[in-house]
């Protein structure tokens, strides 16, 4: 019976597995192949020589990698802190208003990220929506709060908010009300309830939200280009440059592989650290 269920399960999973294999794995294999080619070639037919990886190491690309990871980590942390209360309210307090909020947040995704970021540029730039009005009313202008690192982090937080908010709300809705009430009845303060009950029980949601935002933000470039005015260059930006202006596919591929390796390792480490079954209270 068990055996049969297993076989059926594998059978049902087959179409999607094939689809994923073709659409997800194949491009990565292709990129991995290109990353081992000599620089500035456009075929996979040359002898592998790993010269592109040498360039990655020699040319100081680690700075872009570091900026991407630091920016992504900052954005993830800030999102965790600001989304927790909102997600909590969505899961436990708002009731019908949750739907309105969900639609509102999802609606922003209908407009492309670049256009929304340009909207922020128009809002924040010198002579833009804010500074322009302030100057015309008060006579005093000020420099645009653009083209710096904080505004890049702001952009990342703004763009990836839904990816933290919804998993977090899902995680919080998994915290049973009676567990919270029982902890309170047994003498726990609000902070103790948060630390001992809510955070551990909502951990699957926290983890999924953090991984999503971190991975997406680590691969982001529009925020640093548009809002940040390339105050710092992210690794994704470098990858794009290598493929386009640089006409150096092997270098771009090598950079992409480095990013995939770092983020993949981090993600697998995070998931393995967290015993999802135990957190969700399933039988082990």
């Amino acid at each position: 019976m068990r055996q049969r269920e297993r076989q059926l399960g594998l059978l049902y999973a087959l179409p999607l597995s094939v689809f994923l294999g073709l659409t997800f794995l194949a491009p990565i294999v292709l990129v991995a192949g290109f990353s081992t080619m000599p620089e500035k070639v456009f075929e996979l037919t040359h002898m592998p020589d790993f010269s592109a990886y040498r360039t990655v190491l020699a040319q100081g690309y680690w700075k872009s990698v570091a900026w991407s990871l630091v920016l992504a980590a900052l954005a993830t942390l800030i999102l965790l802190v600001i989304c927790w209360p909102l997600a909590y309210a969505m899961a436990k307090v708002f009731k019908r208003f949750t739907l309105v909020l969900t639609i509102g947040v999802v609606m922003t995704l209908f407009v492309s990220e670049n256009i929304r970021l340009f909207g922020w540029v128009l809002t924040l730039m010198k002579g833009g929506l804010i500074e322009g009005y302030v100057r015309s009313w008060t006579g005093f202008g000020f420099d645009a709060p653009l083209y710096n690192v904080p505004v890049i982090v702001f952009g990342l937080v703004y763009v990836y908010l839904p990816f933290m908010l919804f998993p977090l709300a899902q995680g919080i809705s998994m915290v049973p009300d009676d567990a919270r009430q029982a902890a309170f009845d047994l003498g726990a303060t609000r902070w103790q309830i948060l630390k001992e009950i809510e955070l551990p029980l909502a951990m699957p949601g926290i983890l999924v939200g953090s991984l999503l935002t971190f991975v997406l933000a680590a691969g982001a470039m529009a925020e640093s280009k548009l809002l940040g005015g390339r105050a710092v260059i992210t690794i994704a930006d470098e990858v794009q440059t290598a493929f386009t202006y640089g006409q150096n596919w092997p270098l771009g591929s090598a950079l992409a592989m480095v990013l995939i390796a770092i983020i993949g390792t981090l993600a697998i480490w995070a998931i393995s650290k967290a015993d999802l079954d135990a957190m969700m209270g399933r039988k082990s």
Partner: peptide, 20 residues
């Protein structure tokens, strides 16, 4: 006095054990 400061406690109908 709030529940967490009262010297009483309750066994819940659902038991409310902490699954984690």
């Amino acid at each position: 006095i709030p529940a967490n400061k009262r010297p009483t406690c309750m066994v819940f109908q659902s038991l409310a054990l902490f699954p984690h």
